[in-house]
Design a protein around this nucleic acid. Structure first.
Lengths: 154, 154
DNA sequence: GTCGCTGCAAAACGTTTGCATTTAG
DNA sequence: CTAAATGCAAACGTTTTGCAGCGAC
């Protein structure tokens, strides 16, 4: 699997960004970034979760450092901050490539990602019609997932 | 203009809901609902703004009452709560009819609404493919609006 | 030795709730 | 009269910041 390779690549990009900005490579940063990069692509971790996972590797890491590191990762384009309806921010690895959106189950909070180039195209057209230059977008579909639908009939 | 009529209609729906639920018609509720219903369709007021407008008509209205009234309006389906990226909730009159989404200018925070049935259709298809029963969605396109683009070249 | 980074604790933020009082029905 | 609604102030949960000490370079 290319997983290892991809994480290494992400870490490489981070190091490059740090150097380019005259910032330092530190233990906490490395741990937090790695926890984040290693998360399953559909986990969408919140600060709390990242913090607790990071602590398993270095007990001293503080919440504020997680916050600041994720902010940094977002600024350099390695992370995307998402705000679903549940009150806190979640982060996902910025897919260098295709953008994707989310299907969110209102019952079990499960999240499925999807890509739909056709929607992206239409959306680009809509924006142009209104004179907007698109920088990003967010598209979330809320509903009840298959397994929760089944459970409901029980 | 049908504006007056429409506000009256919305107020009527609210009264009907209140009666149906055994709730009371009170001064503060009337004022808050009216402020909300009278807002321009693209204003997307936050609690703060609704509160301050309501206070202009009744100095005694408290923030908590605005909060609870907007929650009520949301529950009975007369308001939709929106959370854009700016940290607080905004409300808009629930268009009984067609759903619409938002184009948001990252520079001036201006908001333009749009409807795109084609996107809705595709999205329905995507959800079905994943076994989801759609209940709602949110689609926001972020970018720079025409006038901010011009300003930028200045 | 710098200057950035860290952890802690505390502030800030919008949202939400407990409670004593007021008021619609 | 009674239960619902109100305003205030305080509690919440999360995000953000101030600061003294620590550590990368």
């Amino acid at each position: 699997m290319g997983e290892r390779r991809e994480i290494a690549a992400l870490e490489g990009r981070l190091v490059a960004e740090l150097v380019a900005r005259g910032l330092r490579q530190t233990g906490p940063r490395r741990v937090i970034a790695r926890v984040f990069f290693e998360a399953a692509p559909d986990e969408h971790l919140g600060l709390d979760e990242i913090h607790s996972r990071a602590r398993k590797r270095d007990r001293h890491i503080g919440y504020a450092t997680v916050y600041r590191t994720m902010k940094l990762l977002t600024e350099v384009g390695l992370a995307h901050e998402r705000r679903f309806g549940d009150g806190f921010s979640r982060y996902e690895v910025a897919a260098g490539a295709a953008h994707h959106d989310h299907l969110i189950c209102s019952r079990c909070a499960g999240i499925v990602e999807f890509e739909e180039p056709e929607i992206e195209a239409i959306q680009e057209r809509v924006a142009r019609r209104h004179g907007f230059a698109v920088t990003s977008h967010r598209h979330e579909i809320y509903g009840i997932c298959a397994s929760c639908q089944k459970a409901e009939h029980g």
